[in-house]
Amino acid sequence: MSERTPNGDSPPLRERAAAASARAAEHGPVIELDGVEKSYPYFRLQDVRMRLAPGEVMGFIGPNGAGKSTTIRILMGFVRPDRGEVRVLGHPIPAAQAAAKRHIGYVSEEMRLFGQATLEWHMRFVASSYPGWDAGYAKMLLRRFDLRPEQTARRLSHGQHVKAMLLLALARRPRLLVLDEPMTGLDPVARHEVLSELMDIVTDEGRSILFSSHHTQDVEQISDRITFIDRGRVIESSDKETFLERWRRLHLELPAGGALPVHPGVIDVRGGGRLSIVTTNAFTPELGAAYERAGARVREIQHMTLEEIFVAEVMASRKESLA
């Protein structure tokens, strides 16, 4: 039996998660959504519950149209929910959104800067509204992102635009960074630059990040908590390590005429004849032993990537809702 580990354990993430839990217990969560619902003619956000602790980085993953942006718009106060409660940095939303947004940096793929104004004008404008604006950090980001302050927003490429928006959000030194699909449409180099900057920010333990994407690779690198959403429902939310530890794919060899016993947590069974591949979200070493006691030989136990887990979660959730 062999074991492959595509995502190695990362003690710093574990420590960060523990520290985040301690801070949440002390100061309360940064984001709290309870029973949030919002209906549109062809889409419904259903009973969304979510918590983000101080210093925690949450990857908010879902397919296109799953409800990520709607959830983020609700917590930013742009959209009023039909039902449910929302608190951000302790402030009720939307009622006290202005107070909450003093400490939020928000970047969305759908967001644009004022086309006729230069990046320098934007920097001055943001600085005038945020007392915590860090001019030195903004200058450093200008260099790091290779941006020219005299350039008008209209002349920026998509990648430059995203980096400019990120600069304007980061130099506010926000307590909470909300990133709604910021990597969409970026070339690999720009993605690397943006992710590198975010990785640096992650080291600041006081800052929380909500990072929405349908690209698990981006999210996986910086998140210590993962929430999956599909068709308007949060289908799973847990710390990344737990996800990666719980999910496994077992390659089993069955004796002739043998049948696999049913175990809780088995999401999918594929293959036929003597070879089967079992996907589980509740792996313990005992599961392999149980299959061996039933006569199967465990040929391999594979860790799963976050993308594989995401797809398996979504498919299992859809199968469940159909049943």
């Binding site: 947004k101 969305s108 759908e110 967001m111 086309g115």
Partner: peptide, 17 residues
């Protein structure tokens, strides 16, 4: 239309303001 509204609303003011 030019999607600058989201940027504007990210500032500390309510949609009403």
């Amino acid at each position: 239309k030019e999607r600058t509204l989201a940027f504007a609303l990210s500032f500390p003011l309510s949609p009403g303001q």
